[in-house]
C-alpha cells in the first residue's frame, strides 16, 4: 500500500553566514503518523521545523508541506498546518475561551463551528470551569494541553510541535501524549521534537539530527536493531556523542 506523503524534504539546508544550521536533510512524512524529530540542543531541529512551517526561508534544497512549496506557497502552507512553538504562545492576559476564539477566528473558522467545537474541547480537557479564567492563572501542564488543542482547533493536516512537554510533570506528559494519539487517530499528522526518550518510543518513526545532519531515520524498533541498542536512550547517546557542535 502506497502511503500518502504529507511532507517531502530533499537536500534542505539553512545557512546563517558561515554556519550551516541544517545540512542537506532528506526525508518524507506520511499521513497520520507521529514523526519524532530528535537531536541535542543546537542540532538544528527548530530551524528545520521553522523552514517547514514557513517561518524561515531555506538556503537551498526542496520541500513540500501539505503539497505546497516552502519557497513560494508559504501562505497556503500556513492554512493547512498547526504550530506550537517552544515558547508558550497563548495570550496570558486573555481568558481560555477568548484565546480559543481568537486563534480559531484568524484561521477563518465560522462562529457556529467555533461555538460548538469550543464546548466539546473544554469538556475533553475538563476545563469547563476554567473557560472564563485568564490563561496566566492556569498551571503549566494545562497551558500546554490548551496550546496544543488551540494549534489543532482548525483541523490542520499537519501539526508541528516544538518540545511541547518541556518542564511538564510525568502525569501531564502522559495526558499530553494521549491528546497527540487522538489527533493522529483523527488523521492529523504530528511532527514533534522532544528530548524525552520515552516519548521517542511512542512515535511511529523517529529521526535523529546531529550537527545539522540527519544521521538516523526509522521506527524505534528498527533503530534499536540498527545500532544494537536496548533502548532509544542508548541509540540517541551513541549518535549524539559524535556531535562536534556544542549546544547554543
Amino acid at each position: 500500500m502506497e502511503m500518502e506523503k504529507v511532507i517531502e524534504v530533499k537536500q534542505l539546508s539553512k545557512r546563517f553566514g558561515n554556519f550551516t544550521a541544517v545540512d542537506a536533510i532528506t526525508f518524507d512524512v506520511y499521513k497520520g503518523e507521529i514523526f519524532g524529530f530528535l537531536g541535542a540542543n543546537g542540532a538544528g531541529k527548530t530551524t528545520a521545523m521553522r523552514m517547514l512551517s514557513g517561518l524561515s526561508v531555506p538556503s537551498s534544497g526542496e520541500a513540500k508541506v501539505a503539497g505546497f512549496d516552502v519557497y513560494r506557497q508559504t501562505e497556503l502552507i500556513k492554512r493547512h498546518i498547526g504550530y506550537m512553538s517552544q515558547r508558550f504562545s497563548l495570550y496570558e492576559d486573555l481568558t481560555v475561551r477568548e484565546n480559543i476564539r481568537f486563534y480559531a477566528g484568524i484561521y477563518g473558522m465560522s462562529d457556529a463551528f467555533i461555538r460548538d467545537k469550543t464546548a466539546s474541547l473544554l469538556q475533553q480537557l475538563h476545563m469547563e470551569a476554567e473557560a472564563g479564567k485568564l490563561v496566566k492563572s492556569l498551571p503549566l501542564g494545562w497551558k500546554q494541553k490548551l496550546a496544543f488543542s488551540v494549534a489543532i482547533f482548525h483541523e490542520p493536516q499537519i501539526v508541528f510541535l516544538d518540545e511541547p512537554t518541556g518542564g511538564v510533570d510525568p502525569v501531564t506528559r502522559r495526558e499530553f501524549w494521549n491528546l497527540i494519539y487522538e489527533a493522529a487517530a483523527s488523521g492529523i499528522t504530528v511532527f514533534v521534537t522532544t528530548h524525552y526518550m520515552d516519548e521517542a518510543e511512542y512515535c511511529s518513526r523517529v529521526s535523529i539530527m546531529v550537527d545539522g545532519r540527519m544521521d538516523a531515520l526509522g521506527t524505534p524498533a528498527e533503530l534499536k536493531k540498527q545500532f544494537d541498542a536496548a533502548s532509544m536512550d542508548e541509540v540517541f547517546l551513541r549518535l549524539a556523542r559524535k556531535a562536534v557542535r556544542t549546544a547554543d
Binding site: 514557513g54 517561518l55 501562505e75 500556513k78 504550530y83 515558547r87 504562545s89 496570558e92 484561521y107
Partner: peptide
C-alpha cells in the same frame, strides 16, 4: 518578547 508574534506569523493572517 513573549513569542506570540511567532504564533501569529505562522497563521494565515
Amino acid at each position: 518578547e513573549i513569542g506570540t508574534i511567532e504564533q501569529i506569523n505562522v497563521t494565515p493572517i
